[in-house]
Nucleic acid binder design. Structure first.
Length: 483
RNA sequence: GGCCUUAUCGUCUAUCGGUUAGGACAUUGCCUUUUCAAGGCAAGAAGCCGGGUUCGACUCCCGGUAAGGUCACCA
């Protein structure tokens, strides 16, 4: 049984620096972090860099940047240290060696004399016989003395069926086939993940291990190691897999799992991604979907963690992002929008205030805004384009007599409206009765096209209020001249 | 192939033996200062199959089936 009674909760996130952070990893980090925070516990960031071949330079910085962006912080970690530093496995080799030596001295581990070629041969033999390959079937009777240059394997003395409890899954078990003499120390002097993470979790006092469900299969090995070391295990909390949107396979880098920072570039808000990710494999049990971090933390319970896998549904993420955009405080919204508009336009603070509501209801992500800016979709707000071209194309064969007449009428009316009355409310109040009188269709569309140069645009009264009296008159006059 | 895990609308899910099986995304239709967007309203849409247990199973048990994971000197 785990030894977690009355202990301060300690969880960790332990990525390996092999590239960018994808959403699956972040989701695991999120769960561990949420649980620690909720319980006033400690959350540790630890770097598992025991595979020097797969290591990608710059990964650690990237991991830290990704976690910080989404809002995860840690109490102990490689960048800030802590009571059990260092938090990078390659800097803890002495510790692993000490424990490895101890296991070896006790006769619980032994040196592996086989070459990779020999092992491959054994594997093929098993494959031919259609049975699972087990190293222990080939265990050397008189293994050589371990000098650190051979792999060190744990000796499974008594293969048997093991049953254990998982806080999220309940009772799990595996047959003796799942238990084999696995490698603790590699011939390059580095520990394997299987060995190192257990030693580190022990040292760092980790009470709850949040992990993805591919680790269920190797749990019997961990259990054997805990026993060999004579230590109580932490609690296991196994998360369901995240499946790719297209197939049914686990979402991995190869299946298009994106770099979390890619979502940042797409203009997804970190709070939205956090909310979305937490909801893959967890929900509060009621109808709430858009939840603040505080609410999520309050509602977070391990027993509400899902057992079945969930697909990564980007549509829902986009929807959620829109919900978050709507809820964004005014100053933040203004900053996000003006940052992107300023790439092409210079607009006054006042203009910005007027156009933000329309922009906000037209975008789901800030990345879309960037696209619109690039394609000139908002030009009519800022720069007077030549609207007439599109107008003519739009109704080539139409009779323009009535639109022209109506535009003249509206032009005269607008000339009489004072600058101070050039607001959406006032303009609507003054012009709408006329539009009703003349027929909405025969006034509103010519006006819209004259003002925006497009068939599709926001409400023409709104456009008037945005571009102002002078520019409105100019645009309408231009349209009349061409008709 | 062995071992393991999982299984409710297209998707994410609620239900912890008794419900007209609820919500959200997506879809479709309707409404609104005749467009676009947003918003409002509405509709269609689900318990993998077969056995048990029980007065009663989506829910518990068993067996299939399907999907996924894992069997590395990767993590």
């Amino acid at each position: 049984m785990p030894d977690t009674a009355n202990k301060k909760i300690v969880t960790r996130f332990a990525p390996s620096p092999t590239g960018f952070m994808h959403v699956g990893s972040v989701r695991t980090a999120l769960f561990a972090w949420l649980f620690a925070k909720k319980n006033n516990g400690t959350f540790i960031l630890r770097i598992e860099d025991t595979d020097k071949e797969r290591e990608v330079e710059g990964s650690i910085e990237h991991i830290i940047k990704s976690l910080k962006w989404i809002g995860v912080d840690w109490d102990e970690g490689p960048d800030i240290g802590g009571p059990n530093a260092p938090y990078v496995q390659s800097q803890r080799l002495d510790t692993y060696k000490k424990y490895a030596q101890e296991l070896y001295n006790k006769g619980l581990a032994y040196a592996d004399p086989y070459s990779k070629e020999e092992l491959d041969k054994f594997r093929k033999e098993s494959e031919k016989k259609k049975i699972a390959f087990l190293y222990r079937d080939y265990r050397p009777e008189n293994p050589p003395k371990w000098d650190g240059t051979q792999p060190l394997r744990l000796k499974i003395s008594e293969p048997k069926r093991l049953t254990w409890n998982d806080l999220a899954r309940g009772e799990l078990s595996a047959g003796p086939e799942a238990l084999d003499d696995f490698i603790l120390m590699k011939s390059d002097g580095f520990p394997t993940y299987n060995f190192a993470h257990i030693i580190d979790d022990l040292y760092m006092g980790v009470t709850h291990i949040f992990r993805a469900d591919e680790f269920i299969s190797s749990t019997p090995k961990f259990l054997a190691l805990y026993e060999a070391l004579g230590i109580k295990r932490p609690e296991f909390v196994t998360l369901p897999p995240i499946l790719g949107a297209e197939g049914k396979k686990k979402l991995g880098k190869r299946d298009g799992a994106k770099d979390v920072l890619g979502y940042k570039d797409d203009g997804i808000l970190p709070q939205a991604l956090l909310n979305f990710l937490v909801f893959i494999g967890w929900n509060p049990g009621d109808d709430r979907e858009v939840m603040s971090l505080k609410e999520i933390m309050q509602a977070f319970e391990i027993n509400k963690i899902q057992t079945g896998g969930g697909k990564f549904n980007e549509d829902k993420l986009i929807w959620l992002n829109k919900e978050y955009i709507k809820r964004l405080p005014d100053d933040q919204l203004k900053k996000e929008i003006s940052d992107r508009l300023s790439k092409k336009y210079t607009c006054s603070d006042e203009l910005l205030d007027r156009i933000i509501p329309t922009i906000t209801e037209r975008i789901n992500t800030f990345g879309e805004l960037e696209k619109y800016v690039k394609e000139g979709e908002f030009d009519y707000f800022f720069i007077p384009p030549t609207p007439l071209k599109e107008m003519i194309i739009w109704k080539k064969d139409a009779d323009f007599e009535i639109p022209k007449k109506n535009l003249n009428i509206i032009l005269e009316m607008i000339e009489k409206i004072s600058e101070t009355d050039f607001t959406l409310d006032k303009l609507s109040a003054i012009l709408m009765p006329k539009a009703n009188e003349l027929g909405k269709g025969s006034l509103l569309w010519p006006l819209r096209v004259a003002l925006s140069g497009r068939e599709k645009s926001p409400d023409p009264f709104y456009l008037l209020s945005v571009i102002g009296k002078e520019e409105s008159l100019t645009r309408i006059q231009k349209a009349i001249n061409v008709l």
